[in-house]
Structure formats: structure tokens, C-alpha cells
Nucleic acid binder design. Sequence first.
DNA 1: CATTCACGGTGACAACGTCACTGAACGCGG
DNA 2: CCGCGTTCAGTGACGTTGTCACCGTGAATG
Lengths: 224, 224
Amino acid sequence: MELTIDWLTQFDGLTRLEPEVRQSLLAKSTVRRIAAGTVIFGPGKPSESLLLLLDGRVRVQKLSESGREIVLYRVEAGQSCIMTTAAMLAYEDSAAEGIAETELQAAAVPLNVFDETVARSPTFRNLIFKEYTKRITELFQVIEDISFLRVDIRLAQSLLALSRGSAEVQATHQRMAAELGTAREVVSRQLGEFQRRGWIRQSRGVIEILDREGIVRLAAVTPE
Amino acid sequence: MELTIDWLTQFDGLTRLEPEVRQSLLAKSTVRRIAAGTVIFGPGKPSESLLLLLDGRVRVQKLSESGREIVLYRVEAGQSCIMTTAAMLAYEDSAAEGIAETELQAAAVPLNVFDETVARSPTFRNLIFKEYTKRITELFQVIEDISFLRVDIRLAQSLLALSRGSAEVQATHQRMAAELGTAREVVSRQLGEFQRRGWIRQSRGVIEILDREGIVRLAAVTPE
DNA sequence: CATTCACGGTGACAACGTCACTGAACGCGG
DNA sequence: CCGCGTTCAGTGACGTTGTCACCGTGAATG
């Protein structure tokens, strides 16, 4: 169950890790499998390790008191889920949660090992700070998109992102609405329009992409 | 001009700093005065030190290509401007900028000293990670507010925040619009409504608060 | 004193959010 | 296989917010 494979090679920033740090990290961390749907961190679920994602995808989202939700960003394989370190610091009020969208394989670095490694290794430090910066930059972009882009454009972008090249997106309108932080009805109407234009075909829980080019064109619009 | 006062006492997280780290930080950092209006960091202005704010206030905002802007958060005295470390990492595309809203007094910690201190001092590490987490948490909140709160409520909140207890807010409608990431016309209409209710009195560039209680009540609304 | 410009007010309309309600598709127990 | 509850999706009406075009005012500048 808990392997000690050399997972460090999967992280761009860690390939040139100092040898003794490398050994220490491998020895003191555990590689874990986590089932799809598991809540990694969130209100009432403080985590006690930093997760370095080897495989799978984590969705970080925020739920408002009114029950609505919005996706903040995703963590992909080869990235670290820095909010798990944040959750360690007990910021309960954030009300953000991380959910395994797929089955995960992740290296769990216990808090004390994390701290020790940050102290010892410039390479590791660099990786961590880069991750933080990257997330913050992403959040900046989310804020800009929400504030200034039309929903049809954001919906098109979201569709392309979620499809990952495939011709089928498995998602309900409710789910898409959460992606954009808007209302389901808005998504229904917009997808209806996309369908009328022949860009997609819809069935219950599935959106099939017929004309990717059309969606790409809309997604690329920068209204001036 | 460059003092070597013991500014470390002004940071909650640094009062119990390890003695030798304390000396080192004081010796290798410089305390600087920065004029109001100065752009601390931003596109094309990479910074080469971490700024620890001793006095004054920094506004961090993002400008879209279309020229509109939105305030992301503020850095107050006693906090560190972590985006200066991010800017060091050359994330040019972020297009966020930090502006001195008032005259600043700040301790500038050069990049190499920052890195060295993170390595040496658990206390300093803790402070830095707490700051990052705090900013991220704030950004989460901004996203939620933008997505789910009505603008009149957000405007009321913004007015209270900017007034800082005073009865007068010096701000144009354009400025308030940037605070909320909305359009000037919207602010004009809402402030007009506030005035009709007797909550404020407006004159060119100034908003005078007449009935703080009324504004507070609106700001506290959590529509269910 | 004349011109320019930042500021703010407004009406019309488009885009988006909310509410209430509808029916269709699915999942499950009997 | 049927009935039933639940999830999902579609729609009309209406309120809120964003956009566009335009105007008047007062401040600053030469």
C-alpha cells in the first residue's frame, strides 16, 4: 500500500534536489492512494501533511453560507496542494475545501518534515514559494475573469478546460454553474444557445462537443 | 535616512525572534521611506526585496487589458508585502501592481537575506507562511463577495472600510468602482440612492457619512 | 478669460441573477 | 414491471447589474 518509489522525479522543481535531502524526504513521507470524491481538506478537516500530487486531480472550491459554490482552482499531478499547509495553520474561516476529482496518488509530507525540508533545502524552498505564487497569480486571474468577462465566454473556456481534448464533458448544468460561480439557469440558457448554434449536443449529465472550433473562437474573444 | 531602529518589535510574529537571527536581519535590511503614490511592484517593475511594512498602507490591484481595475487587497502596517517576493520570481503575466496609498516606512529585506532567514529561523518561516495563507484566504473571500453579494451591500462595506471611523471618505466614483470591480455608473446610482436615504452627502471627490448606522445595517445583510 | 478635462448624473438597453414552476429522465423498492 | 421520489433541465417574468451614449458642472491650466 505505501510504496517508496522515487516519486521525486515527477516534480520539475525537485529533480535536482540535494541528495541527502532527497533521501530524507523519501524516507519520511508516505505515498498514499486516495479515493475519488474524498475531501482532502476543508472546514473541520485540518490536514497534517503537505500533499504532493503524483497522479489525479484536486478541485479546490469555496462554498458560501447560502449553499452556492464556486471553483477556485485545480491541482494537477506534479503540483503541490499548498492549501493543505494552510489548513494546518487552522484558518477555519476560509471555508474552502479540496476534493479529489479522480483517484489520487500523492506523497504526504508530514508538517514537521515539511518545515525541516524548507529549512534545509533551497531547492525545496524555491518549489514551495513558486507554488504559492502560482496559486495567488491564478486567483488574481479568476477575480479578473469573474469581474470583466461575459459568462458565455467563461463558459466556453470552462468547457474546453474540462473536456481536456475529449469530445465529451460529463457535467450537469449545476456543476458548470459552480465552475463559473453563476446560477444554473444561466448555464442552461447559454448551453441552449451553444446547442442552437450546433456547437454542442446535450443529454442528461453530458455535454458533447460537436464544433470545437466555434467554442474556441468564442473563448478567445477579448471584448474591447 | 536609513535608520537601524529595532523595527522588529512591530511585527507580532517576530517579537520572539531568535537573537542571532534578529541581529542579522536588522544589520542586513534597510528601513526606507517611500512616497505616497509610488508603484512598489508591478509589470515591468520587478522588486528585489521583501517589504515589511512599518507604517502606511499599500493597495494591491489588478488592471485588465480593457483598462478597468479592481482592488485585490491592502497591506497594512505590521504586515509583509509578500507579492514583492512573488514579483522576484518574475511572474510577469500577473499584471497586478502594488501602490503606496500613503507615505510608507518599510523594512526592505534583500532576496538573499530573505532566503537565508527562512532557512535559519522557524519563527520567520512561520510568519511568512502565515502571511501567504492570509492573503490566499482573503482572495477567497474577495471571490465569494464578487460572485454572490449585491453591489449595494459591497459598496456599503467598502465605504465603511475606507472611512476607517472617520466621517469623510475621499474618493471619486471611479475609485469606488475600482474597489468593487464594477462600473462607475453603477456606483453613481447606488451612492445616489444612499444619499436619497440620508445616509451620505456627496460633493466632488468626497463622500460624507451622515448615518453610519444605516450603512452598517445594509453592509451586514446576508440575503438568504 | 477661454479651453480643457475630470467628475458625476441619466436614460435606454443588454446581460445576468432570482424566483417559481414545469416536465423529463433516472434510480430504487416493491 | 410499476409506481414513486429525486435529480436534472427548460422557461417566463422580473429585478439587478453592466454598457453605451451623452450631458452639465466645476476645477485646473495656460
